[in-house]
């Protein structure tokens, strides 16, 4: 009997002994979406930051809004800097899930004012563009033709999640002028989407969208511009139409109650400065949110990034999205499931 008690006691003690040293690294945690974008953020922002300041930064991910919310509400926050979508950043700020950034004015001077708020600042920005196969032959060249399955047959790749993009292009294709998009006419947008519903292939990650295009599963789609550029560089024959491209930023935020909020501010300040932004843009084809970065980029990089097509771009109304996200999300998922 004594032995059993002893074994029991050991068992209870074991988990308490093991974890300690090896795993408990006290360092700020940067969380992003995984994949190549996160790898580039690590290489161009985190590694040089560590080299410069001597502060090690851990990576986690992918970003998961459920985890984000649960962490803040429980007061046990493992993340310090998180890359989130713009509409979530606005909504989370409203719901009190974020730490005020309080960045010094000197850090923000050169930042594109579209991507600055008291609780979040741009990470990088990209455009949802129209990508198509068969650039030499007939192909849809704008959103109206994109929805014209009769003339341009084939499957269509669209972003799976309810965020600025898909509903907007449906309305644009249906003839809504860009300056009258908001408030979104959801009935009209879903009606338009209904016309191509059976042809839609949803993608949930950049890699998946690339794979659909490379494998020929779709003939056209709405893509992140950087992913199409990577396809072209990889030798896949795809075309890009920038007409009415939708520019959206990823935002950097600090969850409320983050353990390393001060270092997090320092890290964000570094990540949005001119040189790291330019280096990131060079490797991904996305746009820097720092206006001073443009001077540091090669002409080719500037051409590949969204600001070269600013004349034809559309800025979604993030405040509208933040206010109506839940309602749109419910309807969106219900419609997808139909």
């Amino acid at each position: 009997m004594r032995r059993i008690v002893l074994t029991l006691a050991m068992m209870m003690a074991l988990p308490a002994v093991i974890p300690a040293a090896a795993y408990a690294v006290d360092a700020p945690v940067f969380t992003s979406w995984g994949g190549s974008t996160e790898a580039m953020q690590a290489r161009n922002w985190l590694e040089p930051f560590t080299k410069k300041t001597g502060i090690p930064v851990l990576k986690d991910g992918p970003t998961n809004y459920g985890k984000f919310q649960a962490m803040v509400e429980s007061g046990n926050v493992a993340w310090d800097v998180v890359d989130v979508e713009a509409d979530f950043a606005a909504k989370a700020a409203r719901d009190g899930l974020l730490e005020p950034l309080g960045l010094p004015a000197s850090d923000l001077m050169q930042i594109d004012p579209r991507f600055v708020s008291p609780y979040s600042v741009g990470s990088f920005y990209f455009s949802f563009v129209l990508g198509y196969a068969n650039p030499q032959g007939p192909h849809p060249a704008n959103w109206r033709e994109f929805f014209d399955i009769a003339h341009f047959p084939g499957k269509r790749a669209l972003y799976k999640f309810p965020s600025p993009g898909v509903l907007e292009i449906a309305l644009l294709a249906d003839g809504v002028p860009p300056d009258q998009l908001y408030p979104l006419d959801l009935d009209r947008a879903f009606r338009k989407l209904d016309t191509i519903k059976s042809a839609i292939r949803w993608w949930s990650s950049g890699a998946q969208s690339q794979q659909m295009m490379a494998a020929g599963s779709v003939t056209a789609g709405m893509f992140w511009n950087g992913r199409l550029r990577a396809l072209q560089e990889g030798g896949v024959d795809v075309g890009i139409s920038w007409e009415q491209n939708i520019t959206v930023a990823d935002m950097l935020v600090i969850p409320r109650g983050a353990r390393h909020a001060d270092v997090a501010r320092q890290l964000i300040g570094y990540a949005i400065s001119a040189a790291p932004q330019a280096a990131f843009a060079h490797m991904t084809g996305y746009a820097p949110i720092n206006l001073a970065s443009l001077a540091l980029m090669t002409p080719e990089d500037r051409m590949a990034a969204p600001q070269a097509h600013a004349d034809s771009h559309i800025d979604p109304d993030i405040a509208y999205w933040a206010a109506h996200h839940d309602e749109i999300a419910r309807r969106w998922y219900a419609w997808q499931a139909e």
Binding site: G35, S204, S205, Q211
Partner: peptide, 9 residues
């Protein structure tokens, strides 16, 4: 899992 979601490498 992360790779399947993001990279499919």
């Amino acid at each position: 899992w992360g790779n399947l979601q993001q990279d499919l490498s």
